[in-house]
Simulated scan of single mutants.
Amino acid sequence: MAPPLSPLRLELMRRMQAGAAAGQVFTWSDFADLGPHEIVERHLLRLAASSEGVYVTSRASGDWDAFFAEFRVLRVARGVYYSPSRNRMTKRPTVPMAEHVVAAVVSRLGGRWLVPPEAAAHELGITNLVPARLVVETDLRLQPISLGNRTIEFQTRSARRLHWAGRAGGVVVQALAWAKDLLTMSGDEQERARIRRCVSRHLASEKGPEARIELQACVALVEDWMRGQIDLAMEEAGLDPVFAPSWHSGPAGDGEGPDPDEPQSGMRP
């Protein structure tokens, strides 16, 4: 007969099971109220170790019944864990959303990361494509992560390049960067109008006000063609433009203006 589980481990399991359906991932910080880092991490490692062998066996045989007979925890990366649920169609363990994994891995180390253009375009509804290889720009040096059939790779970038990291306006900028060729080259006007509707719908949503304020505050970092597409999207939706007329009167922008986060040099009065 197995010994009874400790209250701490039972609470870990309860919380992780509650987040399984949403594909939530966990780090020690999610359980900081339960005890010291070393003790919580030890319990998480033991839960993952007890599941790993069963996972390997089930994957080799294709029979997942034994795996799901008990509560399971899998480790995605160092210090990052999740409890898989069972996919109704494939009957295999689900994998967490790539964005959740990236956020947990980077934030655990105190870094910043930029939403990949394809992920931002997917969030706005511009595309339904889910690439097998996801490249994430960050200020950390990190090893690739395998996530089911997908691979997450990391590219180190400067702080200036990562200005839009963690900002609501950054999702719009990255999504439009992904759709640049579709919007600026000759092609299907109906497709361009559809993309602009996705942009205006996002900027009119509950996330929109924060994104619009950030875009206006950092107008020098938004390329001219992108400003024009955003304002056109708003105009077509019967909404107030984000930039016009202020950005038309200034010097031509290329998205490479000074970073508002960096102190400006010059003579002091």
Rank of each mutant, 00 (worst) to 15 (best):
E11S: 03
A77N: 11
R194C: 08
R92P: 08
W64A: 09
G125S: 05
Y81D: 04
G266K: 08
E11Q: 12
A177Y: 11
I230M: 01
R150A: 14
A48H: 00
D254V: 06
F154H: 06
D240A: 14
A168Y: 06
W225V: 07
G228K: 02
A48W: 01
A48I: 02
E153Q: 15
E262R: 11
V172S: 02
A119F: 02
M97Q: 08
W64E: 04
T27H: 05
V95C: 04
A132F: 10
A21H: 08
T184A: 09
M267D: 09
Q264V: 15
V73Y: 01
M185D: 12
L114W: 01
D188I: 07
W113T: 06
E223F: 03
M89T: 14
K207F: 04
F67R: 05
D188A: 07
L147S: 00
R150K: 15
R133I: 11
I126H: 13
V56P: 00
P251S: 01
Q174F: 08
T156K: 14
A120I: 11
A22C: 00
P7E: 05
S265V: 12
L74D: 01
S83V: 10
V115L: 15
R141T: 15
R86A: 11
A211T: 04
G253K: 08
R14W: 09
T151H: 07
A77S: 12
A60W: 10
A103V: 00
W164L: 00
L176W: 11
G19V: 04
L109C: 06
A22G: 07
S158M: 06
S249G: 02
R157A: 15
L134C: 11
R92H: 07
M234C: 04
Q17H: 10
P84A: 00
W113M: 09
I213S: 10
G208W: 03
A121K: 03
H43M: 07
Q174Y: 08
Q216Y: 01
D231R: 02
